[in-house]
Write a protein that binds this DNA or RNA. Structure first.
Lengths: 192, 192
DNA sequence: ACCTGAACACCGTTCAAGT
DNA sequence: ACCTGAACACCGTTCAAGT
């Protein structure tokens, strides 16, 4: 999934920073704690990334790219758009499974105003990736372009909200229950 | 709406802290900046609140109480449950109108794991207030208790997600558009 | 009762110094 | 090329000292 496969220091920093940011956000990303996880001192981080802002931007950029790859894979695995749509929430569920973490970009959307601009750009890019994929699938399922785009935004916002709420309660079953309620209400049905 | 009407120092601290926390979260609530807004030094804050955790808990407690009052007022103003339901998103829209702020508790839900427990309790209380109100209105509209509770959770999560996304884009029209999409999809319709 | 300056251990960041 | 200790201005917090 990730662009780099070897385990260089920069790579280890990126991986550890992603996990911390998913759990604690940009403000909660502590460089001294991050350095300790990687086995170096905080000052050494600056040899790999010029600043916390650049590091976080690199983390978010990869996160968006990995999400795009995951969604493409989902499209390839499913032959019917309705099936792809139904499985979309899985991508958000996985963060919850993985240590009650949330989508990096959901957390950073809350922090948006305090984010360095290079990080903001990547958070927007993540949203674009998701909206484009959802809109495409909805159009394959028969929706007109404009309606599909509006519905894509609604699904993205709703699933993000479900993930946030489930993580607050530390209850992954709540996430499943919320997605099911959305389904019952008709949010994933293109035909209305 | 608020419990206190006079403008004591404690009151001014509480009001200023609420505004800062809505924009920057618990981690972004800077005590030196807060003190400056109120016109005192950071050390003086400790004469009014024993710690940042206690201050934030007081802020969240009042926020939950004010929300409960707002929702009761909404019930009183509307005679039909469908109308009350349709106007529910207004309570979230107002934060956006007021300086692109978001619901205090949405922000704190993202930060949940890093919150002091006394603050966590109040964030949960806010959610309970909203869920109880929504569930009550949905039951008045004819839903069975269990279905109403599930749908209440779905509406709460979806509206929270919409607010978060709109604030990230700094676009209140996006919020309106998302709520409209939810309506079109059937999320606010008890009859399904 | 309320306020303050100074100090504490903590943050992100820089930089001279090491290998 | 990569790492480090020490220092900087910043955080939440404490406390002795003031009114």
């Amino acid at each position: 999934m990730s662009s780099e496969a070897n385990s260089s220091s920069s790579e280890k920093i990126l991986v550890a920073a992603t996990r911390i940011a998913q759990a604690h956000g940009y403000a909660g990303l502590n460089l001294r704690a991050l350095a300790e996880q990687v086995g170096i001192k905080a000052a050494s981080l600056y040899h790999h990334f010029p600043s916390k802002a650049d590091l976080a931007a690199a983390v978010a950029r990869r996160y968006a790219a990995d999400s795009a790859a995951t969604l493409e894979l989902l499209t390839a695995e499913t032959d019917q758009p309705a099936m792809a749509l139904a499985r979309y929430p899985e991508t958000f569920r996985r963060s919850l499974e993985n240590g009650n973490r949330i989508c990096l970009c959901s957390f950073m959307t809350a922090e948006y105003d305090d984010l360095p601009s290079e990080v903001q750009v990547q958070v927007q890019a993540f949203a674009e990736v998701n909206l484009a994929w959802l809109s495409g699938v909805l159009q394959e399922a028969g929706m007109k372009k404009k309606s599909a785009e509006l519905r894509a935004q609604a699904i993205f916002a709703a699933v993000s909200g479900a993930q946030l709420m489930a993580r607050g309660r530390q209850d992954i079953k709540l996430f499943d229950s919320l997605i099911e309620s959305y389904r019952v209400a008709g949010l994933f049905s293109p035909d209305n």
